[in-house]
Design a protein around this nucleic acid. Sequence first.
RNA 1: GGAGAGAUGGCCGAGUGGUCGAUGGCGGCGGUCUUGAAAACCGCAGUACCAGAAAUGGUACCGGGGGUUCGAAUCCCUCUCUCUCCGCCA
Length: 428
Amino acid sequence: MIDAALLRDNLEAVRTAVTNRGADLSRELDELVRLENERRRVLPELEGLKRDQNAAGDEVGKAKREGRDTSALQEASKARAQQVKQLGVELEAIEQARAQGLLAIPNIPHSGVPIGKSAADNVEVRRVGTPKTFDFTPQAHWDLGPALGIIDFERGTKIAGARFTVLVGAGARLARALINFMLDLHTRQHGYLEIEPPFMANSASMTGTGNLPKFEADLFKISGEWDLYMIPTAEVPLTNMHRGEILDGRELPIRYTAYTPCFRSEAGSYGADVRGLIRQHQFDKVELMVFTTAQESHNELERLTGNAEQVLQKLGLPYRTMLLCTGDMGFASAKTYDIEVWLPSQGVYREISSCSNTEAFQARRAQIRYRPDGTGKPEFAHTLNGSGLAVGRTLIAILENYQQADGSVVVPEALRPFMGGQEVITGR
RNA sequence: GGAGAGAUGGCCGAGUGGUCGAUGGCGGCGGUCUUGAAAACCGCAGUACCAGAAAUGGUACCGGGGGUUCGAAUCCCUCUCUCUCCGCCA
């Protein structure tokens, strides 16, 4: 949620930001400004009435104690009580519309973010590792995996439906090894605290991160009398760890990491991008999450992105890091780096991590604050999140980058301790 | 799933219709005393919104929502959560 004061004091900045994102919300913004003015007309009037009402109530109390007759006083108050009630209803309607309107406005992009319309306008900030050249035609993971008997697409579909997959044998173990490898790296070397959160979250949590109300269609909702959704990312439970809390500024930054499965319905997506393990309804991810101060948050974004990149470096996978333009960023983000891993079968870099600084956007929605130095006025925290990394896509990248002419796959050295020393994955 | 008991400020815990935003204790901050510390004593301390340049003033908040009343932490309804016992289960 953006700061309502910004709407009042610098409407044009908000308009520009929204336009740069490629969204047309001018009507919504006009309506919000109107509601804001309405609110500030009605609120003082109502508060004045309540003040009189409180004074009158005290008067009655005093009169009663002195044994005087109070019926005249009470008659007058009765009429005003009606007025208060009516005006209260009016204000309630205004505030509700205002709150809803605010929730629909995306975050303001950071000044360092390039203005652009689509992924084509993203800026490459660095490229690490050299794509390996093969003396044979590298296969895609959707051919390699089934041939090795470690990915079973058909049975995933039988059990659950399209875009569900079964990992088998070394495939399942590889996923587990990757999870352990990533968690160990982030907890032991990068200073994150490991968390195992619920894999479902309620609507208050989903609203806090910005998944609700706007993106309900992307979520799996539990049916029946449950206010529960499957989490689309560990960002949801991790951010909501401190929802409604006032943190001690001296304890910042707080850094969490968690492995969770992620569930996304993504009703809208289709096409060549979704083949194989690339886009699934359920996938594993190790997430990185930071709570910090406004002063430090952009430094933390660089750090967090670097932590995610470390995974690829240690696995020896070539990648590039992209700074997303205004038109390609997520709703809640002020600045985002995407990390893209090299996939030789397609000859492209493919997103494997997204690292975002949402600044105070989520904190404002979720009421996450801190007192600098432990005392004084609470300020909104800044929250950051990033994948460190998406496990399924990392598994794909390993299969494709480490494949050999005979269809076997070499296990990256860093992963072997997590694979019981196994060096090569061969067919059964 | 069944029965019962609860939910009050950072924490503990009073308060059952009228100066209660809320007694008291602990913890926190500032001070007195002390060479320093402790103890003791004194004082200050919640959050949000509105008006204001500010000082300050106002309104709301005693788990959430609704109701009764001139007036609700206190009475009524409802929801959520916690605890105890039973049942069921990993």
